[in-house]
Structures are given as C-alpha cells and as structure tokens.
Measured scan of single mutants.
Amino acid sequence: MPSETPQAEVGPTGCPHRSGPHSAKGSLEKGSPEDKEAKEPLWIRPDAPSRCTWQLGRPASESPHHHTAPAKSPKILPDILKKIGDTPMVRINKIGKKFGLKCELLAKCEFFNAGGSVKDRISLRMIEDAERDGTLKPGDTIIEPTSGNTGIGLALAAAVRGYRCIIVMPEKMSSEKVDVLRALGAEIVRTPTNARFDSPESHVGVAWRLKNEIPNSHILDQYRNASNPLAHYDTTADEILQQCDGKLDMLVASVGTGGTITGIARKLKEKCPGCRIIGVDPEGSILAEPEELNQTEQTTYEVEGIGYDFIPTVLDRTVVDKWFKSNDEEAFTFARMLIAQEGLLCGGSAGSTVAVAVKAAQELQEGQRCVVILPDSVRNYMTKFLSDRWMLQKGFLKEEDLTEKKPWWWHLRVQELGLSAPLTVLPTITCGHTIEILREKGFDQAPVVDEAGVILGMVTLGNMLSSLLAGKVQPSDQVGKVIYKQFKQIRLTDTLGRLSHILEMDHFALVV
C-alpha cells in the first residue's frame, strides 16, 4: 500500500459497493488471473465517493441489488447463522422517566444476534452475496479491517462455511474481542490505534497488504460494500417497522461504517417519512454534520465500534436529520445504567446512543415513540467499562463513588512517597548505550525526554532486548525507535489509591 493515498477510480455505471474482489474501477472485475494482476490496485480507499443510485421515491424494481426479506425461524435451526436477525424490541421503562421523557422509549437489542452484535447481519450478508456472485469459493481466505464486531461476525460465518479468516484490528480494541476471535479460529493482526486510516500501518493498510500477498484472499470491505446497508434496509428496518406496527417518530443510532443508519433510515424514509433520524458520533470522530460539531482538541476516545477519521463510502449522511456528539463518560455511564436499571447487557456504544436519545427525544410528546439501536453486548468489555477499576483509572468514576473498604494508605498523596527525580535518556542515544546505562543503574525503564525536557515516551529494558533479539533494531539504532509513546501519567497530588489502580493494569506510571 502506498504512503500517498491515490484516488480510487470510478467506473461508468453500476453501484460502487459490489461485493467481491475490487477492480481499479471499484466494481467486480472478471477475466484471467493475468488481467486481474495487471488491473487490481494495491488498495482502494474506504472513503471513495459513493456511486449508489438510491433515491427517495425511486421504484424498488430499479435497484441493481439482490434483495432479501426477513424469514421466520424454524423450530430447529440448521446452523447458528440462522440465529442472525429477528432481534427483540424491548421497552426501556426507567431511564426515559428518569430523564423526563414523555414518549415511549424502545430498544432494538442487536446483541441477541448469534455473534453478539449488529455486525453479524452485514457479515453474513457480505459472505452470502460474495458466494452468490462467485467471488468467494471453498478454501478462500477472508481478510477484514475491523474494530472487532464485524470480525467476530465474519469469523463466526467463516467457521460454519469453512473459510480461512484473518482479522486486522487496532490495538485499542478489547482483549475479549481478541479472545472470541481466536476461539472462532480467526487469525488476528493488531495495528497502532493512532495510525491514520490511509497510513500503511493502519488496520485498513495492513489488511490490503495481506490481501496482495495471500492468494485467493478477499477483503469484503464493510466500508464500501453495498451488502452492509442492504442488510439493514432489507431486514433490520423491516423488523423495526413490523415490531412497531409502522408507528415510530424517531430513530437514534450510533454511527461507525454508517451501514446501520443508512440502511434503516432509507427504508424508514420510504415507509415512515415523518420519522426523524438521529445520528450519534463520538467526540474525536469526524462523521457528524455540520462540520463545526467535529471541532475539538480530542483525537482519541475509548468507546469502541463507532466514529472514524474518514467518511466511509457506505455512509449516506443525507438521510440523517440531526447529529449529536457523545463523550466517553456519558457513554459508559449510560451503558452501566442500562445494565443495572433495565437488565440490558449492552456495550458502550449503546450507552452513547441512549445518552443522546434522552436529549433528542425531549421534543417528542406522549403517545409518540423513539427507537434506539443497541449494537453489541457487554461480553466484549468485561475488563473495560464493566470494571470499576478501569473506570477509575480512566477518570470516568471517582473514588467516592465506590463504597468498598480501602487499605490505610489509600488516600495518601503520591508526594508522600518522597520520590527522587528519575533517570532520563535522550532519544538520540543508541539502544546499546541505553541498555548499558539501565543495567549500570539497576533500572528496568526510563523516560525519554528531548533537550527541552519534554517527555516523549518510555523505554524499557525488556522491550529493547526483545527488539534486538527479533532483529527489529540494532544496538547502533537510536533509542527513539523503541519508545512507548502511550503511558499513564500521575500527579504528586493524586492518591496512592489512584496509582494502585493504574499499576494493576500497566507496568509503570510516570509522575509529573
């Protein structure tokens, strides 16, 4: 994948999101292997301009796509893939009243899908469409860049269908997702969380590099694949309309690839034109409109599966009536509230959605109805927002919020430890010299600072030695090549209790 991002070429006709291997024109390309080798690009942008032909009021008969309808489940399912879809609609009884809503608040519980998330729908649909058009064949390999849930859905379907599955996901995604993927037989590649989507090191860039190296491999490409919004247009939206008897006044959905909100909203605009569509985008993402909503100094966020630093091709923002931004604290607070007060075992993005819903639905009156999409299960986040310690460490809970008995030293300040200034190293000294210094002084790690004293990161003896043994660096290389740029900081005025929580999850903390 090139470091400079080429513009994806656009073909003359058809839909841009065809499933299957992508040609340089962004659509299915038939021909000899030699032709494909000559024409197939190194990668295709996940934010390529959409060429979708959908228009409100256009006859369904003019759609270029294969459409399906929700099917009634048999008493005995032939395999677990038949437990994807037909998820329950559940009334939220307490939270709406707590925040003064007059309307009825309903939750579409997508964590009841077989793999635990709304992404099971698009995973199965992308595979079925690729099999139907002859792209996927027995023994082929599926590769997908994902925040985890699409990966789980694909790995689940691949396990049943017999495909090899490789999932490329950023490091910030939970260990629970990784464990589930491994249990399903998927191979996992992790990428830096802070890598831009168009960087060769991003999950998108690495996935395309693997595709170019592995024979008979395919990126189904949830960011561009029409099967993504079509899955929701054909099934999720129809289920909502049936469950609500066609009567709903507002739908609120958090947005990642945009397939969920695009597919549902398009069908609702056709069948229930008075329904307002509300999009939820986390602070630090750029999906919301108008652009002024996205202006923030924050560039990272903890909530998973929603928000991006690019506009995915499948996201149709014209069908969203209003956007709201959400933050991590309210997302996790509301997710825990949904679990504790409503018994809905949902993930953090569901918290984002409901946090926005109780604001947006203030305009609705008694007798009206708001539906929220709860995308995934708490299963993926047992060591994250479900953990009091994690919430404390991230600053989303305060010590006084917890009532468990603490040891005698818990409320003492870090400054009472009488710490001395640490050994520091410059980023320009060599790895070999740094190892000598650390061994001589008896230290395992040291902060790396520039000549102005600005902290650049941390270097550890173990990481340097393993990097040297693996051949990633040489003793003569500058130590700046092996620094940890993500590390926890703590102030002298913070409590030892807070430091204790940090050290339970990290090997060190830097006192500043």
Results as ranks from 00 to 15, higher is better:
Y223S: 00
P6L: 15
M89L: 12
T53P: 02
M173A: 04
L77K: 07
R125Q: 15
Q243I: 03
K267H: 07
R164F: 04
H67W: 05
A69K: 09
C52N: 03
D238N: 10
V255D: 04
V180H: 03
S23G: 07
R276N: 13
S123M: 01
S19D: 09
G153Q: 03
P215N: 04
H203E: 05
E131M: 04
I167E: 07
K119P: 01
R209Y: 10
G139V: 01
A231N: 04
H67R: 03
I92C: 07
Y163N: 00
L42V: 05
H232S: 05
I80N: 07
K269C: 13
I84T: 11
R58D: 12
T260K: 01
K72L: 12
Q243T: 14
P2D: 13
I143Q: 00
K137L: 14
L156A: 01
I122A: 04
R209E: 12
C272Q: 09
D35T: 14
L251V: 11
T191G: 01
L105R: 03
H65R: 01
P74V: 14
G20K: 12
G148T: 01
T5K: 08
L124D: 09
A207K: 00
T53M: 04
D198C: 12
A114R: 06
S23T: 13
G85D: 07
A107V: 14
A159Y: 05
Y223L: 04
G100I: 02
T141E: 04
S147T: 03
P74H: 07
I76M: 12
E270A: 11
P21Q: 02
H232P: 01
I188W: 04
P12C: 04
E171N: 07
I142V: 15
A130W: 02
M173K: 06
D234K: 06
G20N: 09
E4R: 07
I80Q: 06
L210T: 05
S217Q: 05
T68E: 10
H203T: 09
E37V: 15
R196V: 03
E144W: 04
S23Q: 10
G259R: 00
S19R: 04
I152W: 00
G139T: 08
I152F: 02
E144S: 04
P2E: 14
A60Y: 11
R196I: 10
M126V: 11
G258C: 03
E128S: 06
H22Y: 08
L268V: 07
L124T: 10
P64E: 08
T235K: 09
E104R: 03
K269S: 03
Y233H: 09
R276I: 08
D179P: 04
G100H: 01
R125C: 08
T262Y: 00
S3N: 14
P6T: 03
M126G: 04
F197M: 09
I92F: 14
A114E: 07
M89F: 08
T135W: 10
G115H: 07
A48S: 13
T236S: 08
F197G: 05
I76K: 11
S217D: 01
I188H: 04
I143T: 04
K119T: 04
P273Y: 01
G96I: 08
S202W: 04
A24G: 12
A130H: 01
E37D: 12
A253W: 02
K94W: 13
N93H: 06
D238S: 13
H218P: 04
G139S: 10
K83D: 10
V180R: 01
K83V: 06
P229M: 05
G116I: 06
G185T: 01
K39A: 12
E131D: 12
D129A: 09
P200C: 03
E187A: 02
I214C: 05
P200G: 08
G246F: 02
K269E: 04
G115T: 08
L268H: 00
D140E: 10
P2Y: 08
S61N: 03
S123E: 08
D140R: 06
D140L: 02
W43F: 15
L220N: 00
E110R: 00
R161E: 04
L124N: 10
Y223R: 00
S50F: 05
T262M: 07
R91I: 07
V255G: 07
